[in-house]
């Protein structure tokens, strides 16, 4: 790698990082470097200053606390893969983590970093959408919480201020009768998604869908919510017909472009397929029992 030269800062506290953000001219934050390092290597990114937050120990956490799954800014994708509470209770997270990039990158790349990167082909944005997640930003005036639906504006563009540091991503801890899943279609390990869908369902005591969340990857200018599909599911009992309708609604809500990953019509169709598959797994994990429809 032959990056252009830059000034490298290593704060050890969030306060120090925020004051650097405020004082330096257009700095870039380095966490796992999953996206930044290749951009430096191609010299597509040419920052004068880089604030490397890897020395901020207080951001290294991933745990359930106060009714949330809290993911600190230095929790790596590999940490998500290796954390028991996620394997036990957060199906969509457990599905998504091993599908990201390759093991070397998962050891470096962070969940919060990919939220800040706001790549529409990123996986975590869809998972957070399905879980009605939010992120915490710290700036000179203190801390604020941004719901995920208000975070992504455009490809690689978020509602974060220039002097704000994203410190945490979190989702509400699952309730009784909740299940989630993530399905992704890609050409190979390490490749971005051709399309991906995260789904979350909460079933009530009666077996009806009390709450539904569906987030979509790589089929719009940002990670996107399939709101009509969610609304269509709520109040109904899971069934093949219902999920087929939800799949169609999600596909209609998607807005993919043709590119090297596949043609737009194909991707839209895949949103339908992946939505149904993710809903199927989510329903099963929520405690519903699968029964094959006689053909």
């Amino acid at each position: 790698m032959k990056a252009a030269s830059f000034e490298h800062h290593e704060p050890t506290t969030v306060e120090e990082a925020v004051s650097l953000l405020e004082s330096l001219d257009e700095p870039t934050i380095l966490a796992g470097g999953q996206s930044l390092v290749p951009m430096l290597r191609f010299r597509l990114a040419r920052p004068d200053t880089v604030i490397d937050i890897n020395g901020i120990d207080s951001l290294e956490y991933l745990h359930e606390e106060d009714g949330y799954l809290r993911i600190g800014a230095l929790a790596r994708h590999a940490d998500v893969e290796d954390t028991d509470v996620i394997a036990d209770r957060y199906g969509s997270f457990a599905d998504a983590a091993p599908l990201i990039a390759d093991p070397q990158i998962r050891n470096q790349g962070t969940v919060v970093g990919s939220m800040a990167q706001a790549d529409p082909k990123g996986d975590w944005g869809s998972v957070l959408i399905a879980h009605d997640g939010e992120v915490t930003a710290r700036g000179p005036d203190g801390e604020r919480t941004i719901p995920v639906d208000e975070l992504f504006l455009l490809p690689y563009d978020t509602s974060l201020m220039d002097d704000e540091l994203l410190t945490e991503a979190r989702v509400p801890a699952p309730v009784e009768g909740e299940g989630s899943a993530y399905h992704k279609l890609k050409r190979k390990t390490g490749d971005y998604a051709m399309a991906g869908v995260a789904a979350r369902l909460v079933l009530d005591d009666d077996g009806r869908i009390e709450d539904a969340g569906i987030g979509m990857t790589a089929v719009d200018i940002t990670n996107a919510r399939a709101a009509d599909a969610e609304a269509h599911l709520e109040g109904e009992r899971p069934s093949a017909d219902l999920f087929e309708e939800a799949g169609e609604l999600a596909a209609e809500a998607s807005n993919p472009e043709s590119d090297e990953h596949g043609d737009a019509g194909y991707k839209e169709r895949m949103v339908d397929v992946l939505t149904q598959r993710a809903l199927g797994d989510a329903a099963e994990r929520a405690g519903a029992v699968k029964r094959r429809v006689p053909q």
Binding site: G177, L185, R187, M194, L203, D206, G207, R237, P238, S239, A240, F243, E244, G247, H261, G262, D263, Y266, R269, D272, V273, Q276, R277, L279, G280, A283, E284, G287, A288, V289, K290, R291, R292, V293, Q295
Partner: peptide, 25 residues
């Protein structure tokens, strides 16, 4: 995958996306 899907589609071998399963709580 998209090239194979196109070939399936031309041969009328693609499946309508379907969950193919029902659920009981």
């Amino acid at each position: 995958p998209d090239a194979v899907w196109e070939a399936l589609d031309e041969a009328e071998l693609t499946l309508e996306p379907s969950a193919n399963v029902d659920f009981a709580f």
